[in-house]
Every structure is written in C-alpha cells, then in structure tokens.
Design a protein around this nucleic acid. Structure first.
Lengths: 371, 371
DNA sequence: TCAAATAATTCAACCAATAAACAAATCCCA
DNA sequence: TGGGATTTGTTTATTGGTTGAATTATTTGA
C-alpha cells in the first residue's frame, strides 16, 4: 500500500537518484565533492559524476572552489546549489498585510515586498488585485536578477480545498474564493494555495537546526497548526488538518464563533493572550498535551503572535505537558519559539515551490529543456 | 526529504514492480489475468509475465481456472494469492486471555487458539511461557498444513519501544519486559511486538470495505487508538502515538491513575461505559472531535469493548462531533463499529507479518531461496 | 474452415548503474 | 628535485531490467 501505485522504469531510477544527489548536496553543511556525495549516497563515483553533469547543465548545481584541503590527492571540485537556478515566488494574504517574496534555490530571500493594509473590509477581488501587483513587482525584480521562477504559492489564513479553492477564511471574510485562476493568469506560473500555518510550518522546517518531526502552532486572531511528520507536511484526509484552534479545552466554557463551547481559540487567541497570559498558557498546555498523546511529537514550535510572548507562556505550557502527557517521563517534549518571524508563511510558500524542484529535479529538467 | 535516503539500482526497480504486481493481484476482486495486471499497472505484458513467473516460483501467486469468459480470444489464466504461500503467526497477550492464530497469505485464518486466564496476577515470564505454548501448537498446525511461517507478531496492551521492548503495560503490570528474545528463541522466527490498538487497527484495515484513512479506537480497561493514514499505520516520532485514553476531557475532572485530571479513560473506560453510557459518549465525542480537528480523519472505527455498545454510544458521540468539529458541515465524519471482534489485535498481528511479505516480496523470495 | 480477437511468450534494443581500469592533480618524503 | 602515495574524476565494458515488436497459442464467430 505504501508503495506508490505506479510502475517503475529505468527513467524513474534516474529521477530518484537525481533527487538523491541534489538533496545530499543541499543538506551538506560544506561544499561536498562528487566523491563525498558518492560516499554519502552509496552510488558509484561514476554514477554521481553523470548525475551531477545533468544537474549542472540544468543550473541546479554549480561547481565552486574546493573546500579547504585536507591531505594528499587531487583537489576536489566543490558542489553547491546554484544561486541562479530556479526560484520560488512566495505570496501571502493576511488580515492586516499582503506580502510577496522571491527565494532562490539556495533558500536565500532575494526580494521582499510588503503592503500593510487591513483586508477585513475589502472584497476578495481587491485583495487579490493588490497581491497580483506585488507579485508583478517581484517577478520584475527576479528577471532583473536573471532568475527563472519555477512557480508561485499563496498563503491564506483559512481552510483550503485540495484544488486550491479557499473554502472559508473567517478572519478575511472569504468564502469559496478561487485565487488560483486569477493568479495563474496574471503571473503565468503554476500556482498553489495553502493554509498559512501549513506553509509557515514548512518555512520553519527549512530553518537552521530544525527537527524533521514537529508541531508548528501559529497564534494570530485564530490559531492554526501545521503538522510536520518526518520532513513531510501532514495535510489530513481532506486537506484540513491542524485546526487546533477549535480543539475543546473546557467543554462547557466560553462560547466560540464556531458554535461550540470552550474552544482553545477563546482562551489562547490574540486577545486572550493579551488579557491573561497564564490562562492562555494553561489552555495551550491542555490542547498541546492532547496533540502529543495522540501523535507522539517531541517538538512543539510556537510561532506567529506566540513567538514574542514565548518566555511568558513557556512555564505554564510545560507544566501542563508534564502533568498530562502520558509518556512525559519516557521521552521529553521540547518547546521552542519559531526561528522565522512574521515572514514564516510567505517564506514557507516560496520554499514550497523550491521544495518541488528539489524533490523532483528530473521533472524540472524536463520542463526547462522543453522551453 | 520524503524521498528515501538510499540509492536506487535496477534490482530495486524489480523489487518495486514485484510488489506492485503482487498488490494488484491481492486487491483485485476477481482473478486477474496477466494482461489485466498489465493494464492495471501500466507495465508491459512481457514484464508482468516475467514478474509473475518469479512470484509463482516463490509460491506467492498461483494460477487458477480463468475468470468467466467474455468474448473471443485465448482464455486467460487467473491469478490469485497462493493459499500455500508464506503465512503469519499472530500472538496476543491481554488482560484476561492469551491467543495465537495462523493466517495465510490470502488473509484466511487457518488456525486459532485461545486460553482464557487472568494475567494481572501473574509475573510476565508466566504469561510469556503460556503464549509460547500456544505458539508451538500453532506452529505444529501450520506445518501439518504445509504452511511456512514468515514471522510472528505479538500484540500487547501497552507502550512498546521501537526495538520491541514493552516499556509499560499498566493493566498487565508489566514494566520493561523483553518479549522478543524468548519468543525468537522458542519459535525460531523473526518476532515483532506492537501495541494492541495499533495491530487491531491494521487488522481492521484489512477487513472488507475498509477505508485507507481512519482512526481505530479500542475501549478496554484502558483506551488505545491506532491511527491509519493512507493505508499506513502512523506510529509517531517515538512509536507511542494513539494514547487517546489520556487526552484531557475535563481539565479539573476525575483524577486518573496517570496523575493527571479528567483523562478520557476516567469517563469512557470499561467501567465508566457500564456505569453511564451517556457520559461516556459525550466524553468520547469531545476527545474524538479533537482528533478530527487536528488530523482531519473522515472515519472513526469503534472497536474492543465499544463495538457491542456501539448503538448506545453513537448518538451522543455524533452530537459532540457535529458541535465541535470545525469542518463538520464541509465534510462529514462517519462512525462505525469494528468489523472484527475481539480477535482484531491477534488477526492484525498475523496480518502485519503477511503485510511485510506482500510489501516486499523480493525480500521474501531472497530469504526463501537462501534456505 | 478461416478470419478476428485476445492471451501469453520470445527476442533484440535500450537505458542506467556497476566495477575496474585509467588519467589528473596534489602531497610527502627522500 | 623527483618519484611514490593518494585522492578525484572519467572512460569503458558488463550486467540487469524494461520496452516494443514480432510470434505463438487458443478461443469465438461468420
């Protein structure tokens, strides 16, 4: 079942190994030689050489000066991700700002545009028109740098259906908004739309020293979560996972706008945190304990509005985790503030595009050659 | 990242395609011909023929009379899983019984042995000795049928570490018990140990008409859950997922033996269900709403002690789900009783062994040939 | 009885990885 | 200063596995 339901031919072998080599270079701290990649992957030096040639021809890798020498022998040629390779366009529509950025293959933010403006009173088409303007500026800046964009991704604070339709974005006042069509038309790029917390979690995954399995919690007006399992975003059966804001904390507690009582959002939303940080921490601790009991996650990252309040919340959350997580004494749960700030979702969106290229370089090489 | 971190050679292609062909035959309602498998998988008829030859030689597939004819042309040879192929030995140690069963490659239960006896007062080695006796009887019965056992799996109601060590099984009174070593020594088979709810979920996955993504909840003295995502058991970062029994339902509620207050177990454990089914249903509904909000699972299966009480619990659970699941009106959550009864965990254990063979037939062929 | 149709096998060609030999470039030591 | 040791990277023949086309096998229907 786990095995993909499709046949494998020789070309799939090459596709897989291209990805393997690219990822190995990407995850290396230094600039590995072909021989080092060969040792790390288990592929022959000859094979690695052939694969690297393809990747260099497709501007996914570049050769650099060798890493500092060690002993005898012919000096190595250092490999690294190409800064002039395919880049990603990250977009975000949020309650009080719009943003766009260009991130290159190495993960460096090359351009960044932000417009602060309350989107709650605007119709969706106005917000979209403005984000399209930002996207156009970003595209110009990218082409001025000689960068080719591989695609665009848009982060939205709401429930997004698999096709990219925004079903509900309560804090924007959106309902069943199709953002994919206008953005594709305007940018000429393949466009995906995703939940803000999901993309922020992906952004966090790429930050330095990030663990492969963690829960990212974003505390804004609403509360969202991105579940990352083994380096992979878990989207749920229908793409609507991570709605931690409506996990019940106090069954007969405060009424929530969703119709239920005692949702986390009522005790740990932005207003609630400002009003009573201790109450917020306790409520968060109860909800997060449920997550850890269910999913056995060892790391929880607090982002969005929680990041600046992290030190004030930490103690209260950890107390509840110690009390309520069954395996707390077998395996500790660590809590940390998000490494990326407010840009997390936008960065994550751009990273998602880059990720696509990194995970399927063969596909990119094919499309790049076709043009 | 998702891409496995290992190189792919041509032999991996064959391994993958062998698995693909085997799974395709296994999942077919009828008895597909080589040509039908070719059409279903996208592999060439020539390739499928070669692969099928290998699978037949390894007694994983057999040729049968063709399925009912349709039109003109040479009649097909029907393919099916071999009933005399490798079988799995499923074992279970539970609070008030021990069990063993032999399941063949087709999923049929060939033999079944159960001993009713309270294990709570016995030291672990006594329970293990008795389950080893059952295992020996099952092995004899299997060899009498001409079956070769591919391995054994043991279901235990407790937390199991990745290596197979039972860290804690509160209702058995076990702590840090190594069941793998004595079982391997006694049976001469590769042995795995796993949580009872996890294995029961796997058993349920194999039942007719099962969905690929669901939550299995087992209500015994404790409450465990198995999370199945896309046909795959989710074990969590450290193998301890699914501890739904200690999800907080009423933060200041009844004290639990784990030290926390208001755990689900105190409101929906076996005793609580008997005492007040409505309270149990409400508590279950609250906890399950949290699961659905977090993981977006569309199907919940109630097993163990919940199965016979299903109709009495259903209404109360569904009411809470409707109220507390954010996406309840976008996508319904369906609730059903487990298809397998008390045998679920034992069957799931045997299935887990079979599953290993089905997912990696190349590995099995290699070991079978070596012998 | 022969043509059409469908199933399965055979065989040459191709593609990708491997293993081993070879070429290139540096260090180290006499 | 020069030769061996050492490591990197490339070249070449070989192997394994799938493909595609042709071939053989077996039935239905005109």
């Amino acid at each position: 079942m786990s095995a993909s339901r499709s046949p494998v031919r020789q070309s799939s072998v090459r596709a897989h190994n291209l990805a393997l080599v690219l990822q190995t270079v990407a995850n290396s701290a230094d600039r590995p030689s072909r021989a080092a990649v060969s040792a790390a992957t288990g592929l022959t030096r000859a094979t690695v050489s052939a694969l690297v040639d393809d990747l260099i021809a497709g501007t996914l890798l570049t050769e650099l000066d060798p890493a500092p020498r060690t002993g005898a022998g012919r000096p190595a040629a250092g490999l690294a991700l190409a800064p002039d390779g395919p880049a990603g366009l990250g977009l975000e529509i949020n309650v009080d700002y719009l943003a766009a950025c260009v991130v290159d293959l190495t993960g460096a933010v090359r351009h960044r545009f932000v417009t602060r403006a309350d989107q709650r009173l605007l119709p969706p088409c106005d917000s979209l028109a403005e984000v399209i303007r930002l996207a156009a500026r970003a595209q110009q800046a990218a082409t001025a740098d000689g960068l080719v964009l591989a695609g665009a991704a848009l982060a939205v604070p709401g429930l997004v259906a698999p096709g990219g339709l925004v079903r509900v974005a309560p804090n924007l006042g959106w309902q069943d908004v199709d953002a994919v069509t206008p953005l594709t038309a305007a940018t000429g790029l393949p466009v995906t739309v995703d939940n803000e917390a999901n993309l922020a979690a992906l952004g966090e995954l790429r930050a330095d020293g990030a663990e492969p399995t963690f829960l990212y919690v974003s505390g804004e007006i609403g509360i969202g979560a991105g579940i990352v399992l083994d380096g992979e975003l878990y989207r749920g059966g229908r793409g609507w996972s991570g709605e931690i804001g409506h996990v019940t904390v106090y069954p007969d507690g405060r009424p929530c706008r969703c119709g239920a009582n005692g949702c986390l959002e009522q005790y740990a939303g932005q207003e609630a945190v400002a009003a009573d940080p201790d109450l917020a921490a306790a409520a968060l601790g109860i909800a997060l304990s449920a997550v850890v009991n269910l999913l056995d996650l060892g790391v929880i990252v607090l982002g969005g509005g929680y990041a600046p309040e992290f030190e004030r919340l930490r103690g209260g959350i950890e107390a509840e985790l110690r009390r309520r997580v069954l395996t707390a004494d077998l395996a500790p749960v660590s809590l940390r503030a998000a490494a990326l700030g407010a840009d997390a979702a936008m960065r994550g969106a751009a990273d998602a595009v880059i990720r696509g290229v990194r995970e399927d370089p063969a596909g990119w090489l094919a499309t790049a050659q076709a043009v």
